[in-house]
Design a protein around this nucleic acid. Structure first.
Length: 190
DNA sequence: GATAAGATTAACT
DNA sequence: GTTAATCTTATCC
């Protein structure tokens, strides 16, 4: 396994597609490493009315305007954290939301973090996976090639990719900017 | 200073 | 299918 190659994060669409099949490694303070494979993503950039960066840079979204390959983490609905991988050159607000993942290692700890036993529901949603992997604002703008939160490339990509419209937004609802691995049960919603 | 909406989830009916 | 939970951010006084 090799760390993610940031040359594949030049646009939010490229990032969203490239991240499919990649593994997220989360190293906890205890030393335990939780691993999950990304199976669903969505693309957002500053030319897109549905993106947090559409109206320009702000304290909340500044990570999206920074270097690619960093974490943009935001809090929403009063209780949920969501994780994005930033994309594009510095100064251009873009990134990919991680919407779904497949638990690989550290499942018992994820069950504990989620207060839930059913593996299929541990990380099949953007706020579910951050809770399972203990990701919050402390990792804001974190470089995703460094511990305690890293992304690795798969050796081979033997899966189909489905492209469709995004979920849970009210602007640009018809834009094709959601990507997921075909037939994977950990995709948040068909 | 006040208000409304939100890249969601889980628990209801 | 509907709705409560819960709070930050943006926007408008």
């Amino acid at each position: 396994m090799e760390l993610i190659n940031k040359s594949h994060l030049q646009t939010s669409d490229m990032a969203a597609r490239h991240l499919l099949g990649c593994e997220i490694w989360r190293t906890l303070p205890s030393g335990e490493v939780l691993k999950a494979r990304i199976v669903e993503t969505e693309s957002y950039n500053q030319d897109d009315p549905a993106s947090h960066t559409f109206k320009g840079e702000s304290p909340r979204n500044r990570a999206m305007f920074g270097e690619s390959g960093h974490a943009y983490i935001y809090f929403t609905y009063g209780m949920h954290w969501c994780l994005n991988v930033t994309a594009g050159p510095k100064g251009y607000g873009a990134g990919a939301l991680i919407r779904g993942a497949e638990p690989l290692e550290g499942i018992a700890t994820m069950q504990s973090n989620r207060k839930l036993q059913m593996v299929i529901q541990l990380t099949n949603g953007p706020a579910k996976l951050t809770q399972a992997l203990a990701i919050d604002k402390s990792l804001y703008e974190h470089d995703l090639t460094q511990p305690p939160l890293q992304i690795f490339e798969p050796r081979k990509r033997e899966f189909g990719i489905i492209q469709t419209t995004r979920i849970g937004i009210s602007q640009a609802v018809h834009k094709i900017a959601r990507f997921y691995i075909k037939d994977n049960p950990f995709v948040s919603k068909k």
